[in-house]
Amino acid sequence: MSENITTLSDATFDEFVGSSDVPVLVDFWAEWCGPCKQIAPILEEIATEQAGKVTIAKLNIDENLDVTRRFEVMSIPTLLLFKDGQPVQRLIGAKPKGALLQEISAHLG
């Protein structure tokens, strides 16, 4: 995995998302989810191309049930965009890169 993507856990989630200066896009995923694997390379690209505008992070739902439940994730992949520690946008299901960027663009500086 790219060094541009941060792996989060129940223990590190709040601190990381709350203290970030730029919006954080969190990818809720699991090993057994086919569509999650399809968007992984797209998120790698966005992490590199949009560095400084948005931070990409991943949370494995299998291992981190607290955060997964707290944000009522019921389908993966789910991408949640956090701004100042608060969720501002929810994207459910795998999407092409263009569509994904377009949907989050309003929240990026």
Partner: peptide
């Protein structure tokens, strides 16, 4: 994505 799913392998969990 809130209980309706087209992907059992993704969402069964």
């Amino acid at each position: 994505g809130h209980g309706v799913s087209t992907c059992a392998t993704c969402d069964g969990f």
